[in-house]
Computed example of a mutant assay.
Amino acid sequence: MHSSLPIRTACPPGACVCKREALLADPRADQRILLLTKAEESRLVAHLESVETLADLRRMQVKMLDLLGMVVRIAPGANEVRTVRGFEIRIEDMPGLCSKTRQAIPAAIRRGLERRPDIAYAILNENDLLADT
């Protein structure tokens, strides 16, 4: 990784299982996730909370994959979806991803879906769950 770019600071010992040090020690590893500093994470969370359309949300997913190597999957849960809590929002496991980030991103997406229910309906429509209504 280019040394002039800021990287995320280490979590307190025992507070996280992100394997940051092992990731830094391997020069061949994908270290893009370490570019997500706490300030950048705050900006990302704010942007995810304020998405206006499903297309915006999908673009954010692509950007997170391209820039950070982070795969975020959003789909209706296995049970009935009555609220945005019924959506399954998962981040695929990857070394270097802080556990707080792993919780903050899905929470921000849920807040965005609560703010814009039309996006939640569009996700349901993508999965043919509202096809008969």
Rank of each mutant, 00 (worst) to 15 (best):
1 M>R: 06
1 M>N: 07
3 S>T: 08
4 S>W: 13
5 L>I: 09
5 L>T: 12
5 L>M: 14
6 P>K: 03
6 P>F: 03
7 I>N: 08
7 I>S: 09
7 I>G: 08
8 R>T: 10
10 A>Q: 11
11 C>Q: 04
12 P>V: 11
12 P>N: 10
12 P>T: 12
13 P>G: 01
15 A>L: 03
16 C>V: 00
17 V>E: 14
18 C>T: 00
20 R>V: 00
20 R>H: 02
20 R>W: 01
21 E>K: 11
22 A>S: 09
23 L>Q: 03
24 L>G: 02
24 L>C: 04
26 D>A: 10
27 P>W: 07
28 R>C: 06
29 A>Q: 09
29 A>F: 09
32 R>C: 04
32 R>W: 06
34 L>I: 04
37 T>F: 04
37 T>R: 06
38 K>T: 14
41 E>K: 05
44 L>N: 01
44 L>I: 06
47 H>N: 14
48 L>P: 01
48 L>V: 03
49 E>I: 07
51 V>A: 04
51 V>K: 00
56 D>Q: 05
57 L>W: 00
57 L>Q: 04
59 R>Q: 15
59 R>D: 12
62 V>P: 10
63 K>P: 07
63 K>E: 14
63 K>W: 15
64 M>C: 10
64 M>E: 06
65 L>K: 10
67 L>W: 11
67 L>V: 11
69 G>D: 08
72 V>I: 11
72 V>D: 07
74 I>R: 00
75 A>W: 03
76 P>C: 04
76 P>Y: 02
78 A>V: 12
79 N>M: 15
81 V>R: 05
83 T>E: 10
83 T>H: 13
85 R>H: 15
85 R>C: 12
87 F>E: 10
87 F>G: 09
87 F>Q: 06
87 F>N: 13
88 E>K: 15
89 I>E: 09
90 R>P: 11
90 R>T: 12
90 R>H: 11
91 I>E: 03
93 D>N: 11
93 D>L: 14
93 D>H: 13
94 M>A: 12
95 P>M: 08
95 P>E: 01
96 G>Y: 01
97 L>Y: 00
98 C>G: 08
98 C>W: 05
101 T>N: 08
101 T>C: 13
101 T>H: 08
105 I>M: 01
105 I>H: 00
105 I>C: 00
105 I>E: 02
106 P>C: 03
106 P>I: 04
107 A>I: 10
109 I>M: 02
111 R>E: 05
111 R>S: 03
111 R>K: 04
113 L>N: 01
115 R>N: 05
115 R>F: 01
116 R>I: 08
116 R>M: 14
117 P>Q: 06
118 D>L: 12
118 D>E: 14
119 I>C: 07
119 I>Y: 07
120 A>H: 01
120 A>I: 05
121 Y>S: 15
121 Y>R: 10
122 A>L: 10
122 A>R: 09
123 I>M: 01
124 L>M: 04
124 L>C: 04
125 N>R: 15
127 N>D: 13
129 L>W: 02
132 D>I: 07
133 T>Y: 15
133 T>P: 12
